[in-house]
Design a protein around this nucleic acid. Structure first.
Lengths: 348, 348
DNA sequence: GACAAAAATGTGCTCGAACACATTAAAAAA
DNA sequence: TTTTTTAATGTGTTCGAGCACATTTTTGTC
């Protein structure tokens, strides 16, 4: 009653051969109504689930998983993803898992499309991607669906109902988390600035979701907060750092600065000179952010855990391929609040 | 060169039979020096790792894992652990994993020892336990080692070098995390109270580690903080809630209260009446704490994620048994900072 | 009833590791 | 050299699922 039954067990219980049981289970026909009933009767009683290990051994297939992700040289935010991939390769290479990286420039749609084409040409079993570019990513997703390739995304979202696995953070809610932190630090009245700092604005929806959540918090609580939004973009011939400094010079006094990207460090660099009493809340545990966090120039960081996102995406896909574990369609990861004292544990 | 080699492949390459290769790999002797050299030559070149799936199938053993953990009726802190167990049972029952719960009363060493004896009598392959009672847990660990049973702990620590897997949080550091939060909220000068609230003091080392870390932060930063420590214990005939209220009545004004146990809600219940301007930081996402967090009577909670602790412990043990993945000897989990906006994602 | 065609059922092999057992080769004793 | 003993090597089976193929049973037709 509690055993793990095998096909052979079922065959004996039903008084038929394992071939017949197999045909019933896989609905391959060529079974008499009488035998069908006998087998189904047993099947109803015992709730059979095939031994996933035996199944996997019989299958004995090499699974190719392709990952489309941005170059970490262009943005260190992506560095932990590469560590996750390395770790997965070590853990699962002997399970017949092959991983193929398709690296693209985070500012170039052309680079993304090229990497995608290259990777899909090799007919992988699954494609995991960062859908930075909405239209192009949608196209990749559709191509995968058409080719019967499992498609998964992480870090960003696109509205494509046929995606098999989506892992990311609730960006709206993470804006609210930042808002609440400011609320705790500053009380019921303050002036805040939301800063969208990025070298390119490919990622605009990302930032705007955070902004929406941020504003939503104060609106809902009916607090006397003044919130100004600023877009800061790298200008062609001026160093980015200089652009930031110029911006800070022109900025009126504020109590807090919410940076929606991982570029809070650019701000923190000058905060002491221009706004010594302001709090900064930013995103992501990149090395430079941690440096300023330690110097107390950044109050809090919100961790999006790209490493965990990749790790979970890949293990989910692998366990699906190897052991038929169902794919989690959508997985929203916790929004980690980071200060000087708890960041090391999040770096693994 | 990149293939996954099988024993058969190696046998062919070395010009011997798979039996001989097998004997070399497992060092079972009965191999001539000549054959040994031939096989080792191949082995050196290709870095062979046996197919873990085939190995597992051949093994085809049912593994019994026993878990010693406190009754969730006595303390809801443990409730998530039971969810994790349920989840693991569903995921892994068809991999031949059986889990046997040994539930004990969190205030009774006798109950712990009894549950341990019962569970060990069934000769499990591993015992995972919450070592609430130092001496008794140490004894259990030694018994397991003697019986060749793998032994793992979570949530608490005991100093037993032969433990195979330890999962928990850095409690000293979590005290520092709380201290830093108060520092951000209150600036460079304040008066704080550390409260050890528990119905019994079995868990004293737990609380004291947190207190040590808490004090250490302010000492290291040389901040003008006054910190008073209070032990609050349930008195036999008075309701616990009444004891707390009496304590608050007698307490001088403080700016913040650090509760080292999951009992912050007992305090929060009366905070508005006695200390309306004080911040409370406590531990654990139990239902009542979340209620007061939402009402802004608790400022922050620190999440020890008992569910994740159990889940990770069990998957680690299972993958060790099934696929020879090495056991992580010691795993320190992140110290999650929780506010009103990010708690839902941590509840799974 | 005889025989062909079709349907149903059973058998046997594979995946890779692991080990029992059978077989062969080499060394020791006669 | 022959026999006995020991060492070395190879063969075959198992684990459970899954599928190809062989065999048996049933149905249809003259």
């Amino acid at each position: 009653m509690k055993e793990n039954y095998t096909i052979k067990d079922i065959a004996e219980l039903a008084g038929v051969s394992k071939g017949t049981v197999d045909r019933v289970i896989h609905k391959r026909g060529k079974v008499s109504p009488k035998a069908l009933e006998q087998v189904n009767k047993v099947l109803d009683k015992i709730e059979y689930k095939p031994n996933p290990i035996a199944k996997s051994l019989k299958n004995n297939k090499i699974y190719n998983i392709a990952i489309l992700l941005p170059d970490a040289d262009a943005d260190p935010y992506w560095l932990p993803c590469y560590e996750a991939i390395k770790q997965i390769e070590q853990e699962f290479s002997h399970f017949g898992i092959k991983i193929n990286k398709g690296v693209f420039k985070p500012k170039s749609t052309k680079s993304f499309t090229k990497a995608a084409d290259l990777v899909i040409a090799e007919k992988p079993d699954a494609v995991l991607m960062v859908p930075l570019f909405y239209k192009e990513a949608e196209h990749v997703a559709k191509m995968c669906v058409a080719a019967g390739i499992k498609i998964a995304t992480f870090n960003n979202y696109i509205k494509e109902p046929q995606i098999n696995l989506e892992i990311g953070q609730d960006l709206f809610q993470s804006g609210r988390v930042a808002a609440k932190l400011f609320n705790m630090l500053l009380g019921n009245k303050a002036t805040l600035a939301v800063l969208h700092i990025d070298e390119a604005f490919q990622n605009a929806s990302h930032m705007q979701e955070k902004e929406r959540g941020f504003k939503d918090y104060f609106a809902q609580k009916e607090l006397a907060y003044t919130i100004n939004v600023h877009n800061i973009k790298k200008e062609s011939k001026i160093p980015f750092d200089q652009t930031i400094e110029n911006f800070l010079k022109s900025l009126d006094a504020v109590d807090g600065l919410f940076v929606t990207t991982s570029k809070a460090y650019l701000l923190a660099n000058h905060i002491a000179a221009y706004l010594p009493k302001s709090f900064i809340i930013g995103y992501d545990l990149v090395a430079e952010n941690i440096k300023y966090l330690e110097e107390d120039k950044i109050a809090f960081l919100i961790h999006q855990d790209p490493k965990k996102q990749v790790y979970l995406s890949l293990t989910n896909l692998i366990e699906f391929f190897l052991f038929d574990k169902p794919l989690q369609e959508s997985l929203t990861l916790p929004i980690d609040i980071i200060n000087t004292e708890n960041y090391p544990q999040y770096l693994n």
